[in-house]
Each structure stands twice: as C-alpha cells, then as structure tokens.
C-alpha cells in the first residue's frame, strides 16, 4: 500500500459519503439512526496499514488514536488527506470533515470554518474543545498543513 493508493481509495469513498450519507445524517429520525450511519462512514474510508502509521502521523489530543497523512499537489495547490482512527464514531466524524476539506487549496483551507458546516449537520456538539474525541485536534493538524 502506498500513499497514492490510499488517496485514490479515499476519493470515491468521500464522494459516496457526500452524495448519500450526509443527507441521511441530516434527516436521521433519532440518534440511533444517526449513529448507525456515522459508524458506517468510517468503514468506507480505507484503513491506514499498521506499518504505515508512523509516530509523526499520530494526532495527539484524542481519547482514541488517530492518524493523518497529507499530500500537497504543488501544481494545483490542492491538499489531499488520508485519515484513520481506532474509534469508529470518531472516524465517521472525521470522514465528514474530510468530505468538506479534501481537495481544498491552501487559501481555502486557511479560511475553512468547520463549526459552521457541522452546525448545519447538527453535529456541532462534537466539536467542543473539551471533548476528547480529537476532532478539534484533527482540524488543527489539517490547518497546520497549509501553514
């Protein structure tokens, strides 16, 4: 497995999530339904193989461990990411975030406001600083990539 392959596998998964799952989450009739979808999202993203999980990819500040890989296409100035987490709900939430940021340019990434987008999906409570799920840490890491 290479970063290229992981990036290639991530792309259609994100498209699928964007086209189908996001509306399902928005329209979920109860929390159980929402969580069932959330947990499926993580499964759609490829897993980063154990031996590729180098310590520098680990995103700190999470109750569960998460990893982020980054690729910057210098010709188009677009940023692409691959991520993984031990915890399924966290991975699902991170998948949603990735849908929103994958392929953004440096300028777009710097301006990106996850809070606003998560609010629309009724997912804002998952972003608060005090929560140990590491989503905020992941967002910070992604923003760091453009700086």
């Amino acid at each position: 497995m290479t970063l290229e392959q992981l990036l290639a596998d991530t792309k259609p998964a994100l498209l699928d999530i964007q086209q189908r799952d996001l509306t399902e989450i928005e329209q979920a009739k109860d929390w159980q339904a929402k969580y069932r979808v959330l947990m499926q999202l993580g499964k759609k993203l490829p897993a980063i193989p154990e031996k590729m999980k180098q310590p520098e990819l680990l995103v700190k500040g999470c109750e569960s461990r998460a990893w982020l890989m980054h690729y910057h296409d210098k010709t188009t100035d677009k940023h692409y990411f691959v991520l993984d987490s031990e915890a399924r709900i966290v991975k699902g939430l991170m998948a949603i975030m990735l849908c929103l940021v994958n392929g953004m340019t440096t300028a777009e990434l710097c301006q990106f406001d996850l809070c606003h987008k998560f609010d629309q999906l009724n997912l804002k409570p998952y972003l608060s600083q005090s929560r140990g799920n590491g989503l905020t840490a992941m967002v910070n890491r992604i923003k760091h990539c453009c700086g």
């Binding site: 929390w31 969580y35 947990m39 109750e63 569960s64 031990e86 915890a87 399924r88 709900i89 966290v90 140990g132 799920n133």
Partner: peptide, 13 residues
C-alpha cells in the same frame, strides 16, 4: 473488539 471511546459515546447519547 470495540474501542471504549465508541461505547462511551453511545452511552453518553
């Protein structure tokens, strides 16, 4: 085989 963070989040809900 489930991560405790997932279980705790479902209990939190």
């Amino acid at each position: 085989s489930e991560h405790p963070a997932d279980v705790a989040e479902l209990l939190n809900q």
